[in-house]
Design a protein around this nucleic acid. Sequence first.
DNA 1: CTGTTAGCGCATTCAA
DNA 2: TTGAATGCGCTAACAG
Lengths: 375, 375
Amino acid sequence: MPRPVTIRTVAERAGCSIATVSRVLNGSARASAQVEARVRAAVAELGFRPSEIGRSLKTLRARTIGVVIPSLTNPVFAGSVAGIEAEARGRGHTPLLTATDYEPEREREIVSALVAQSVAGLVLTVADPDANATLDLLDAEAIPYVLVYNEPTQAERAAVTVDNGAASRALTEAFLAAGHRRVLFIAGRFSTSDRSRLRHQGYLAAMGVAGLSPEPVLELDYLADAAAHRAALEGLLAGPARPTGIICSNDLLALSVIAALREMGLCVPGDVSVAGFDGIAIGRLVSPALATVDQPTRRMGERAVERLFALIEGQGSRTVEHLPFELRTGGTLAPAPSLSELSLSEPEAVPAPARGKRPAQTASVSRPSASRKAL
Amino acid sequence: MPRPVTIRTVAERAGCSIATVSRVLNGSARASAQVEARVRAAVAELGFRPSEIGRSLKTLRARTIGVVIPSLTNPVFAGSVAGIEAEARGRGHTPLLTATDYEPEREREIVSALVAQSVAGLVLTVADPDANATLDLLDAEAIPYVLVYNEPTQAERAAVTVDNGAASRALTEAFLAAGHRRVLFIAGRFSTSDRSRLRHQGYLAAMGVAGLSPEPVLELDYLADAAAHRAALEGLLAGPARPTGIICSNDLLALSVIAALREMGLCVPGDVSVAGFDGIAIGRLVSPALATVDQPTRRMGERAVERLFALIEGQGSRTVEHLPFELRTGGTLAPAPSLSELSLSEPEAVPAPARGKRPAQTASVSRPSASRKAL
DNA sequence: CTGTTAGCGCATTCAA
DNA sequence: TTGAATGCGCTAACAG
C-alpha cells in the first residue's frame, strides 16, 4: 500500500515548498520557469491530483453542485441532467445528483444532506416552487439555486422552464382546430407537480376562449401501471358522448393512457386522439408518433447552470426564464372522428368503432412530422 | 450574513467541549444524559449539520460513492441508478453520478475527478471491462469498485449483471420456437458495449445449435435516429429471403428499428418479429408490447452497492454475480409468417404484405403478457 | 465521563 | 520569486 501522494510529496520531489506547488497548480502567482518545470514534472511522475477535500476545507465551499430531481425514470429529467452535468463539468464542478421520488419530505432531507456537503449551489425540480420550506431554508442560508421545469408564480425564485400555460393552451387549440370538442385533460398529481397544475390551467383557458365546457380533470399517477389507468378511464370513455381527445400532462402518462385505450379496444388516433407533454425521445419512436409539446430539456439544464454560476458570483437575477417550446402534432393527434369522415381524402376501409385506423395527416403546427404509414 | 455554525458554536451553546459534541453526534462514546440533552438542544436550535468536508479531511475518505454510467438517456441505466442511490443513502453516502456518453476517454477523466473527490468507492458501467486502463488505475490506487451490466470474462473484477450469453440464447431460441429461421441480429456498437458483444455471441450459439446459419451482424448506434436505421435496414429487408425475425441488443434500438420497419411499410410483428434486450418500462407501454429480456435493473444497482460496501470493509470478492433475467415474449415476437397462416385460429382479413396485422398470441415463455387487442 | 490537542490537505498571508 | 506558518471543521488519541 503506497503512501498517498499529497502536495507535500510533490514539494519534496520538486525540491521546493508546498506553497510553491500550490501556486503553480492554481496559477495564483507566477513561479520561475525553472521551478515551475520541476513542479510539473513531479506532478506528472507522481500522478498527483490535488485533493478536493483539502481544497474545499480551505475554501469552505466544495466545487460541487447539488442536483435534485423528482425521478430518473422519467427521461424528461434525464435530458436536463445531461445539460447540467456538461455545463457543471465544463466549469470544474462535479454534480451531486439525487432523486426525491416525488416525496416532499425527501426533498428536505436531501437538500439538507447536500448543504452538509457544502455544495456551491443547487439546481432543482421540486414539488411546489411557491410554498416550499426547503427553498426557504436555502434562502436563509444564502445558498444559490436555480429551479428547472418549475415555474414559480408567487415566490421570487430563479427558474428555467417553458411557459407551461401558453404551451398547454396552444396544444389544446390544436385539438380544437382538428375538430375536437370534447377534450379530456388527464393530469399527474397536482400535489407534486406545479407543471401539471399550470398545464391544466392552460387547457381550461383555451376551452373557455372557445366557449366550450371543459371536462372534469382526471388526476392520475403516471408511475402506476396501465391497468390502473384503464380502470380510471373505463367509465369516462363508455357513453356515446365520450371525449374524442385526451391531453395528458406528461408523455409517460400519455403513453400509458394510449396503452390502456388500446386494451379497451379503442383506436388511437382513430377513435381518440391523445397528446402528451415533454417531448421525450421515445415519443418519436412509437407509431404513430406521440403528439406532444417539445421542451429543450438539455438546454434548460445548461441554462440553469449558467444562471447558477451567475448567482454564485453575485450577478444573477431571481426571475423565471422561459425557453421556447415546440408543438409536435400529427401522429396520435388526428382530426376528430366525425370531421375526418368528411375531410379526409383517403377513403377509410374500416368504418369507425374498434378497428379503424388512419394515417397521421393533421397539419403540423410547427415542425411537420414525416408522414408515416400507419401500422 | 450570519457567522456559519460549526461544531465550536454548538459546544459554546451547550457549554461543553467540541469533542463531546462530536461524540454525541457520532455515538462514538457515551456522554451523560445531562450533557447529551444540552448538546442535542443546541444542535436543534442552531440547525447545525456537521460539515462533511471537515469529517472527510480527517478520515481521508468522503462518504460519497462515484457512479459512472454511459448515458442517462437510456432508461435501463436510470433503473440501476435508482437502486444505487437508495442503497447508498441508506448507508449515509451520497452518490456522485456521471455519464460518459460512451466515450472511453471521458471514462478516465471522470474517474480521475472522482478519485480527487476521495470517493469511498465506485459503481460503474464501462465500455470494456476486460482491457481497461481506468479500472487498472483504480486497482493500482486500491479504490474499491463494482461493475454493473458489464460482464468481464478475462479480468478478475467484481460485477453484477445478468448472464447475457444465456439470455440471448434463450431469446433466440424463442424466435426459433416460433418458427423463425432467418433471424437477424442488430447490435449496438461492439466497441462501447461488452453486453452487445456477449448478446451477439449468445445468438450465434443458439443459431449454431439449431443448425442454422446466422445472418451477418448489423452494428448500429442506438442513439442515431430512425432515418439512419431505416437506411441501414433497407437493403437487408428487400429480397424475398428477408429475415422474419430481428433481435436487437437493446430495447431503445429495438423501438427505433420497429419505427423504421413501419416506415418501410412492414408490419411488426405481422411481417417481421422484433425483440429487444433490457426490459425498460416503456417497452410495456407500446402496442404491441416489446418482446425483450427483462433485467432486474434496480436490484442490480442495490446489489452492486451492497457488494461495494463489502469490498470497502475488506470482505468482498471480485467475482461476476449473475442475477436472474426474465424472457418477455409475445407482443412484437409472433409466429413466423408462413407458420402463422397455418396455426393461427383467428382468420386474417388482409393477406400478407403491407397492412397485415395480428394480435400477439405467442405463448409467453415466462410471464404471460396480458392478451391485448392489436391496434 | 469529559476536555485538550494534534493533524488530515490545501490555499493563503506574511516575511524574507 | 519563494518559504514558513496558519487555520479551515472535524475526529480520534490521549490525559484527566
